[in-house]
Design a protein around this nucleic acid. Structure first.
Lengths: 278, 278
DNA sequence: GGATGTACGTATACAGCGTAAATATACGGC
DNA sequence: GCCGTATATTTACGCTGTATACGTACATCC
């Protein structure tokens, strides 16, 4: 963001947006900004997919030569990281929008697991943001594998911090909060990935079986998959995301009590789950 | 993809293993094969990363011009799908290797949840295979989002079939088996992704904090993340993977499992889903 | 005013990419 | 020997990311 009022300065600090002048007024100076570049890139990717994003194409989209973009993103990879950042900013915004006041009196139990409700809120918002930008989703997994923690966009790090603070604020020690952090991150990421998996083979087709392209799958080798494909193609929605999250939290938060003896138990002992909300 | 064996020769040649000819015997004829191409590609990616994989480079690796590869992979994307396929073949192989005989008498309970143990086995093997080829991991998420179900490599579809058969063989109806399938797939994928996230910023550095590049993170804005980063950089290992899987299975499947497990009944619909809040 | 320094965008160029098309080569069977 | 065909090469085209050099519009100071 540019600063509002430009104090007279002698050097550098390129002519911030002093209120009287708008970017569109200028000849061809100051047309760009990091926000404009990233917004345009996001829009382009949403519209035409990741493979449509090239420096030249994005430049054209902004009425500018490709090289001009390098002033706002050091490389194409940095631009991609910018897209990831944009998603996390959107997530932040959405989380800030509805903090679920819950001003009414709450009993101790509900207050105690307010952090659990907050995790659910984050998971759900993440789900929504990702579904809103399905084409960007591949970047979320890909860039996380490529960019070391310390070099990730600030918005991403803030998000990590937020989750960690939630867990440690709930009294989890470092070891356990890390375990829960990983379980949370992994589950949300994995669930959304599966939710967005490509299923439709031929969108033109009306017949469900042909739409899915089932005729391409050898019938005797993949009987159940063929039968189940239609159901598989539906989305699980936020309900199963929440259910799984509950299950994971129950397990990973309570591990402390029982400590180690867990391997392949299938015992009928049920976790005292649902305490967070409703 | 497409043409696998385009050799419906009528004349001999199909005479089983004609031992006389080996690929290495020939001048420059028959040097290649799909297996050799994929194996070399996998090796190249393992060694130098995905970005090192180009048609020309891979050709050079095999002592061949780039265009020669197009006989064995219809496009670069098809080659990438071939890499995914290679991973799943490795997974299949590993699963076939140790089927955990368990021929000794087992009580009913153990038999009833044999499918659960099998899911754990699959999860663990997946974990191992992915950790063995970390550079290929991005493809697993990426190609799944890009390639519709029906066009995925056969080995991938066989894997899906295997999991589905396991679930439906355990008596889960279609709706529930799909829910469990998605939870399983998502959890394993997400867990492994998080496990492989890049953490080390500067491998040369000996001091842990510098290795992680913590000096790049604003201290007052990200206090917990900085404190926790070292622990976060460790891997969770297969233990937490199994624990989370157990938790998810308990949640998504328990209703069925408590009744007679072998029979295909449609359980009382208590959906495993529940809404988080609102 | 004009000169100057700097931020911003352009122009040009290069190596590498994926791949379509035409061409050369080496083999199996006659 | 020849022929048909599976295989690999050659050539070429449009595209990519980006290094470098250059022009240009502005803010500031004399």
């Amino acid at each position: 963001m540019a600063k509002e009022q430009a104090a007279p300065r002698k050097r550098s600090e390129g002519a911030g947006a002093s209120p009287a002048r708008r970017a569109s007024d200028r000849g061809h100076y100051g047309r760009l900004s990091r926000e404009r570049v990233l917004a345009s890139a996001l829009q382009l990717v949403d519209r035409e997919g990741l493979s449509a994003l090239s420096m030249r194409r994005l430049g054209a989209e902004l009425g500018v030569e490709a090289m001009a973009l390098y002033r706002y993103a050091a490389s194409k990879d940095a631009l991609l990281d910018g897209l990831v950042e944009a998603l996390y900013l959107e997530l932040e915004e959405q989380l800030a929008a509805g903090p679920e006041p819950g001003t009414t009196a709450v009993d101790a139990r509900a207050r105690a697991s307010a952090w659990r409700a907050e995790l659910h809120r984050i998971a759900r918002a993440t789900h929504e943001v990702c579904l809103a930008h399905p084409q960007v989703m591949p970047l979320l997994s890909t860039r996380m594998l490529a960019v070391p923690l310390a070099r990730r966009p600030l918005a991403v790090l803030r998000h990590h911090e937020r989750v960690l603070a939630l867990l440690q604020g709930a009294g989890l020690d470092e070891t356990r909060s890390v375990a829960v952090f990983r379980a949370f991150t992994g589950w949300v990421l994995g669930y959304v990935s599966v939710e967005l998996q490509a299923m439709v083979d031929n969108p033109e087709e009306s017949d469900p079986a042909f739409r899915l392209g089932l005729h391409r799958m050898p019938p005797q080798e993949l009987p159940r998959l063929r039968e189940t494909a239609a159901t598989l193609a539906e989305q699980g929605g936020p309900g199963d995301l929440a259910a799984g999250l509950d299950a994971l939290l129950d397990r990973f938060v309570r591990v402390e009590e029982e400590r180690e003896p867990r391997q392949n138990r299938t015992g009928p002992d049920k976790p005292p789950t649902r305490d967070a909300q409703d």
